[in-house]
């Protein structure tokens, strides 16, 4: 099992009797860029939290790099949805990213921590903004800061939750270009409802709506998505040839 970043087997999660995830079984190979797509309320964020060990599944087993999620947390860089943040919060870009280097109580950030932060800010193209207040940045810039905060942990896997929500379309492309660079070095799991962009940049696609269906070939997915959801799906591709496909499927 050394080739896998994530192994989920029969994982089910429910809150107050409402089922969120049902019998999720899938394995994610190392150094694959997986896009998980699904409607709002389909359990995408919950899936990420299960992988991070923030939510205990009702049943099933979760392995991350062969260990329990909590044990493997230090190998994971997490980029949460950015709406969960107060734009007036008094903190600079540098200090935000530095939090990613947190290593335990009763310590302090070292010179190496600060160097790593400076390097990663360079990588994501945010060096010139390091002394700005995070809340003063644009959505796309904040997202880069949050990616940097995940990357300074020098993770083996990156988990991204709806990273393009609240970012203008112009910024999408450069953001995904950044992820394309990163996928050379690590496993990436991205959850989104932005199906079009996912189809261009990712290796594999999984569809999630309580249940998860894994597609190793993303092309096959495009025509299947509508059926998997059982609801109308709008597809917008951002490739070299822009295209638009409207699928309308009913399933009992």
């Amino acid at each position: 099992m050394g080739n896998y970043a994530i192994n989920l087997k029969d994982v089910s999660v429910s809150f107050n009797g409402v089922s969120i995830l049902e019998d999720i079984t899938f394995s994610l190979k190392k150094n694959i860029f997986l896009g998980v797509i699904g409607p709002n309320g389909g359990g995408k964020t919950t899936l990420l939290k299960v992988i991070l060990g923030l939510i205990q599944p009702d049943k099933g087993t979760v392995e991350v790099f062969g260990k329990s999620p909590v044990e493997s947390r230090k190998l994971i860089g997490y980029v949460p949805q950015y709406r969960s943040f107060d734009s007036g919060f008094p903190i600079s870009v540098f200090d935000t990213v530095l939090m990613g280097r947190y290593g335990g109580v009763f310590g302090n950030y070292s010179g190496k921590d600060r160097e790593t932060v400076a390097d990663i800010l360079e990588t994501v193209g945010m060096s010139e903004f390091k002394d700005r207040r995070v809340g003063d940045l644009s959505g796309g810039q904040i997202q880069r800061v949050f990616v940097a905060r995940a990357l300074v942990r020098e993770p083996m896997m990156l988990l991204l939750d709806e990273p393009t929500t609240g970012i203008d379309l112009k910024m999408h492309e450069s953001f995904y270009e950044l992820l394309s660079e990163l996928k050379k070095k690590m496993t990436i799991l991205l959850v989104t409802h932005d199906i079009g962009v996912v189809s261009v940049y990712v290796d594999d696609v999984a569809c999630l709506n309580k249940r998860l269906v894994y597609h190793e070939s993303k092309e096959a997915t495009l025509k299947d998505i509508g059926e998997l959801y059982g609801c109308p799906i709008e597809l917008i591709g951002h490739g070299a040839i822009p295209h638009r496909v409207l699928g309308r499927h009913k399933r009992d």
């Binding site: 230090k74 949460p80 969960s84 943040f85 919060f89 939090m99 947190y102 335990g104």
Partner: peptide, 16 residues
Amino acid sequence: EFLALSFDKEFSMVVG
């Protein structure tokens, strides 16, 4: 710790 949990509780838990 107080800064991290004030800014983003969930992320702070993920980093320990």
